[in-house]
Amino acid sequence: MATSAAAKAGQTGKRIEVSIKKAIGPGDDKVHTWPHLVRAEFICALLVLFGMIVWALMLDAPLEEPANTSRTPNPSKAPWYFLGLQEMLVFFDPWHAGVVLPSFIIIGLMVIPYIDINPKGNGYYCFRDRKWELLTFIFGFHILWVSLIIIGTLLRGPGWNWFWPWEKWDPHRVEALTSVNLPYLLGLRDYFWSAVFGGVLVVIFFVVGTIAMYGWVVWLKGEEFMERWGMTRFFITSFLFLNMVAVLIKMLMRHMFNIKYVMETPWINI
């Protein structure tokens, strides 16, 4: 059409009239940012700002006595957003709870877009298309992270002992420290063999866990999916996932069976 019109125009020397195809239908559901988006943002900002001012007028920021390095408060708590990590110190040594696990959390969050190859659920709310992704995230974020923060903030008192909200924070409360290591509980008394047993147990957890997860993914999604997913993505996912599960297992072991360490060596304990 256009070429013939141009050829005709070239012959007659008149202006070319080519109708522009308007973008209609599903290809164009766009609206102007001004006013549609800017208006919503402005109203939202006003409301939040108003709320912040009311909050700041009603509630004063805390200011305690001057800093004194020779008087340690009991309990000493980190800022609330780190109390999940501090609560994990109950279950793991500081190098694990404070360094390794936070690193895994940050790295684990960063790799999410690269290990999730499900093309569905991009840009809309849908549970059915992304059931396992959503369940994992909700478990890690809401169940583990947020509940640990709530426990660390509200339920931990002097000596990092467990106090229900209706109990008085008694710094002299006697808590029997009855926790034992798993090898000891199972009857092992020799230091060396306890360490070997614990180490083997940790290795078995990861090996069996990886194999189980492989089987689970194949059963759930099929061989074809596993091939597309690839071994690199699978191993990264299963390693991070097993570490998250390990936190839960260690928590349950500690709370239900009073088990302190699974593995104890002179250098690292898990």
Partner: peptide
């Protein structure tokens, strides 16, 4: 620079001193 501040930061940065090889 009150009690809340220095002890929260002390506790919060204990992870630095627990870092394998570096702390």
């Amino acid at each position: 620079w009150d009690q809340l501040a220095i002890w929260a930061v002390t506790v919060g940065s204990n992870m630095g001193r627990a870092t394998p090889l570096l702390g």
